[in-house]
Write a protein that binds this DNA or RNA. Structure first.
Length: 692
DNA sequence: CTTAGGG
DNA sequence: CCCTAAG
């Protein structure tokens, strides 16, 4: 509690730059970011966890051998605080401190330096919360890729769409069996309580068998997950998707081809808990979206590695790597493939124009493992509309429908066998999130037939109260137009493919899901995000999705989490990629627009208040270190627009409204720093004059 | 690589 | 957000 309180401190006064301008190089040498990247997280996590506010989802690694006691932690924190206070003293005195909280507050960068020591403890602390934050866990029934009997009807997950509201209700699912390799059928039952508390799996048996030994060069194990995913409503818990790279992978194929399954969910009662977590080696999680549905190129690029293997390495080192990779990976195999299927895409002009081409094809088989359970024509996600509750009508010729659930399309996930269950969760979550938040469109089926003409009226189509609505079905399909939005970061193009286009009802499936997640998360855990910490909550990204705050946990040396989704098969036939205006084929596509959330703005403002307007790199490091998609240039630009926004009338503002309070702070800070700069210049002039 | 600014 | 000149 005490800690939490500390966290809530507000503006701490402007901080005069160490030595304006002239010290850039000097500043660089100072490993300001020394421990910030990774450790800072830990520190924060710790604090938040202790405060009971932050829910961590992470690897359940038991490696917490040398956990610190609560006492020790406190000591560390206290020390940090003292130190910070001392450091801050000078600057604060001379500077304005309008926010009134100039008392003591510690900075995370300080505390962060203790992170290494805290890490283990964090684990201890976080364990209790691990599951809590994984509310979205979609438990899946897994089975070998092939048509292993009985596997099909185990899938029960569904996605519930609340009566066509634009909210996605994520409900959930029950059991999950993982079949590892072609051999022993290891089963992992994962149960997700209705409460939203998710997977109980602490240890997956995935790497236990010999053939799946955690050896570095082992070929990826293939795990097929046959399922339906019913997503819980706590979307705010959706973790982001940042997974560093590694080697051994386990592939999970989550399919929706359980045609046998009724689609009804039945709570599983079995829960297997495993004694210890998965062993960890390098891990690389590759997510495969079934070729016929989505394809996601590796998102692990520059920043992906940033915190991955950089536990100790200096920042700059990483940065370099990052940049290099960014360039070198442009030729990622899946990135730029695009195929056309004129005939079938004909009614998708829009898509093509949008820069996405798709080559819907109906009869390809489905997954890499050879099992092609899903009829290709089937939509990626099908919905169960049947049942008594399914449809009924009202007097005024309105058709009322109740969609009970949607099936999630097949997902193929490749994950190192050494990965933790936590990362597995995240991976699956990511995949699901990618689908849900990445852009879906709804397909309508009537008596098994897809209705493609969006212009027909329901009546014309036969979806009227006079007809058997039982025969009406909906499907969630990848929406080429939206998909790239969420999961597809600049570095993780979200390739998707769909079979025959059957656009119909466009359902506003919150492309903002991910975004919201971030926000809510921030809100819940970070009332007043201290500098440097907010950043950790941002991003993710989606990647998206947004890599949740738990990143730190996953930072154990060896694991990087690379999240790569690639089509399980038939890549060529299905790849859908953004098409550039036929200029240079290798032209880099413009990054997707990602409006700053209020929380990000908050973080930015706070950081700028403290650091000033000329130190964007530090601002970035401090407040957006983990927001991979926010570059310092972005921050600078954002500040620019913020200042502008703050100056114009509220009526002229667009986008998500920024609290006036923040805008005021923007102006204040801007004014202050402008003044500082002016002073600085005056001084210089003066000194020069004196010299002459 | 960072900054600062214009586009 | 992008692009670039400058440092």
């Amino acid at each position: 509690m005490v800690l939490q309180k500390r966290l809530d401190y507000g503006f701490n006064g402007y901080q005069v730059p160490p030595t304006p301008r002239a010290t850039r190089s000097a500043r660089r040498r100072v490993p300001f970011r020394k421990n910030v990247d990774d450790n800072q997280m830990c520190a924060f996590d710790l604090l938040a966890t202790v405060a009971g506010k932050l829910l961590l989802e992470g690897e359940n690694s038991p490696s917490s051998g040398n956990a610190l006691t609560g006492k020790e932690l406190c000591t560390i924190v206290k020390d940090s605080f003292k130190k910070e206070q001392k450091d801050e003293d000078n600057p604060s005195k001379a500077e304005p401190c309008d926010q009134g909280t100039c008392d003591g507050s510690f900075s995370f960068s300080e505390l962060a330096s203790h992170a290494p020591a805290l890490r283990h403890s964090l684990k201890e602390f976080s364990h209790a919360h691990i599951d809590d934050c994984w509310g979205l866990a979609s438990v899946i029934t897994t089975s070998d890729c092939s048509e292993k009997v009985g596997s099909a009807d185990k899938s029960k997950s569904k996605i519930q769409l609340g009566s066509f509201a634009s909210k996605l209700e994520v409900g959930y699912q029950e059991s999950c069996d993982f079949t590892v390799g072609n051999e022993n059928k290891k089963q992992i039952k994962i149960e997700s309580p209705k409460t939203g508390n998710a997977l109980n799996v602490t240890k997956a048996d995935i790497c236990s068998s010999d053939d799946l030994a955690v050896r570095d060069r082992k070929p990826p194990a293939l795990v097929s997950v046959n399922n339906r995913v019913k997503l819980p409503s706590c979307i705010d818990q959706i973790p982001s998707s940042s997974f560093p790279a590694c080697r051994d992978d386990v592939k999970l194929v989550i399919r929706d081809d359980d045609e046998n399954s009724s689609g009804c969910s039945q709570p599983s009662t079995t829960t297997k808990t495993f004694g210890s977590p998965l062993c960890i080696g390098n891990r690389r999680i590759r997510k495969f979206f079934s070729s016929k549905y989505w394809k996601v190129t590796p998102k692990l690029k520059d920043e992906e590695h940033f915190n991955a293997d950089s536990e100790i390495k200096p920042v700059y080192h990483n940065r370099k790597i990052c940049y290099k990779r960014r360039r070198s990976q442009r030729d990622y195999p899946f990135k730029k493939r695009r195929l056309y299927d004129r005939s079938s895409v004909s009614n998708f002009e829009g898509i093509s124009r949008e820069g996405i081409s798709s080559s819907p094809r109906k009869g390809f088989s489905c997954d890499a493992s050879g099992s092609s359970a899903t009829p290709c024509g089937a939509s990626g996600i099908s919905a169960c509309v049947a049942g008594q509750h399914t449809s009924f009508q009202s007097r005024d010729s309105h058709v009322k429908l109740r969609i009970k659930s949607f099936k999630v399309p097949e997902l193929v996930i490749e994950i190192p066998e050494s990965a933790t269950v936590g990362s597995l969760k995240r991976t699956v979550m990511d995949a699901v999130t990618a689908i849900l938040g990445g852009g879906l469109r709804v397909g309508v089926l009537l008596q098994g037939k897809k209705i493609r003409d969006d212009n027909k009226t329901l009546l014309q189509t036969g979806i009227s109260h006079n007809n058997k609505l039982d025969a009406l079905g909906f499907s969630l399909e990848p929406n080429p137009l939206q998909a790239p939005q969420s999961l597809c970061h600049e570095d993780r193009p979200f390739l998707l493919a769909c079979d025959t286009p059957r656009p119909l009802t466009r359902y506003p499936l919150a492309p903002s899901v991910v975004h919201n997640v971030v926000q809510q998360r921030s809100a819940d855990t970070l009332p007043d995000p201290p500098l440097s910490s907010l950043g950790n909550f941002i991003e993710s990204d989606h990647d998206s999705a947004p890599s949740p705050p738990d990143m730190s946990i996953d930072k154990s040396p060896t694991h990087s989490r690379a999240l790569v989704a690639v089509p399980a098969m038939n890549v060529e036939a299905l790849a859908v990629v953004p098409m550039r205006k036929s200029k240079r084929s290798d032209a880099v596509q413009r990054r997707i627009r990602r409006p700053f959330s209020v929380y990000e703005v908050e973080a930015l403002v706070q950081a700028v208040e403290k650091l000033g307007t000329g130190r964007w790199r530090e601002v970035k490091l401090r407040a957006f270190d983990n927001a991979k998609h926010r570059t310092y240039v972005d921050l600078k630009d954002k500040w620019k627009t913020l200042v502008h926004t703050a100056r114009i009338s509220p009526q002229q503002r667009r986008g998500e409204p920024v609290p006036q309070e923040l805008l005021d702070r923007v102006l204040t800070a801007h004014a202050y720093w402008s003044q500082q700069e002016a002073k600085q210049q005056l001084k210089q002039q003066h000194s020069e004059t004196c010299r002459l």
